[in-house]
Design a protein around this nucleic acid. Structure first.
Lengths: 118, 118
DNA sequence: CGGTATCCTATAGGATACTG
DNA sequence: CAGTATCCTATAGGATACCG
């Protein structure tokens, strides 16, 4: 740390809290993870990510754009060609997200079991 | 890995996807993080976590319980005493969540800037 | 202290069809 | 291909008050 006080996630109305909420939706983490290996087109993401619809994918990408994590580049032409890519800020999230998805793959069954026990 | 195929977060209807969705709400990460240092009472969490209401905290804790991440112990007596604590499964999430909250504290300002630029 | 009860609204997000 | 448009519903989650 170098003198900055970015606040912490326990404080309401501080940027850290805001940043946590960025990934607090059903699709953000999965979509970001889908961009980990490089730029992807809309259709590529649709194919990659099971269960997401075009509408919801677009919604999610727009939100990620607003939050500075993803860029959208329109190459024009017919048929259209649009690519989504992580920003440098978005790339800083890949470490945490890598851990999270790894956790999910290792512990998904345990979560499922817990839910079914209820 | 030992032969298990837990699926991956890109597959719909697989436990990994389910596990990702466990933390996909406004409060789950912050509440879990609040339990990182040990068992906490309802009021302690209310005090710790800025902006959360009793109702929403209870809701969130119940959901985390259902997902096998948190236990609730009622010690009875007057006044009541209830403690929430991470399960072993919940503790396995602390690594990813530590990274996530750290990221949020380091990059919250950048996210805020991006939002304001929009 | 640790909740419910009640009421309310915004919005996430699913389904489907259409378009430039 | 990459989207909108439209419609729909469930529910997250905020505010406030009451309770054992």
């Amino acid at each position: 740390m170098d003198g900055l006080d970015p606040g912490n996630v326990f404080l309401a109305d501080c940027p850290a809290r805001l940043a946590v909420e960025v990934i607090a939706d059903k699709w953000a983490v999965v979509v970001l993870w889908g961009l980990n290996d490089g730029p992807r087109r809309h259709t590529e993401l649709i194919t990659l990510i099971g269960g997401i619809s075009k509408k919801v994918l677009t919604q999610t990408l727009r939100r990620l754009q607003t939050n500075g994590l993803v860029t959208r580049e329109n190459f024009g032409g017919v048929p259209p060609r649009v690519e989504y890519e992580l920003t440098p800020l978005g790339r800083t999230l890949m470490g945490p997200i890598r851990m999270l998805t790894l956790w999910a793959e290792e512990n998904g069954e345990a979560v499922l079991d817990a839910q079914e026990r209820t």
